[in-house]
Amino acid sequence: MIYLQLLSEFFKIGLFSFGGGYATIPFLFHISEVYGWYTLKELTQITALASITPGPVGINAATYAGLKTAGLAGSILATTAEIIPSLILVLITAKLLKNFSGNFYVKSLISTLKPISCALLTSVAIGLIKPEIGNIKSLILLSVLLLLSIKSKKDPLFYILISAIAGAFII
């Protein structure tokens, strides 16, 4: 029974949360109220944990809720249930794109998506920078990273590691 509930709740999250990671939070909040699989405090911690462990918050929360309610089997089930709806939708979309790649509307859509993607990323970057603007330390670290990138382009992991070290030891 608990398995069925985990399956249907996280399937719903996978199907209805548009806009990625943080869009899942209202759903996770609802689950904690209705089922009590984790407390609100734990939900806050899962959200915080999502930024300190690899992986998107939606996946982390599913894994954690499943683990707490029904052990390892539960966590596999919840995580899988969350991914299945988008797997189906991605496969359909990818197949349509492939089969109709010569179609005028598909071509127009693709060339429209480029500027939109640029705008999406720009607004993400602006959203992330905004809270840091008053913080001198953040601005210094950010400038150092951007300056490093001008000299030579490095692996993303390089930036992540030196920033983590800078954060933990220097600043």
Binding site: S51, I52, A125, L128, I129, E132, S138, L141, L142, L145, L146, S149, Y159, I160, I162, S163, A164, I165, A166, G167, A168, I171
Partner: peptide, 11 residues
């Protein structure tokens, strides 16, 4: 450390 990672993500 995670504050640092947050800045790296912006970069």
């Amino acid at each position: 450390a995670m504050w640092g990672v947050g800045i790296a993500v912006i970069a």
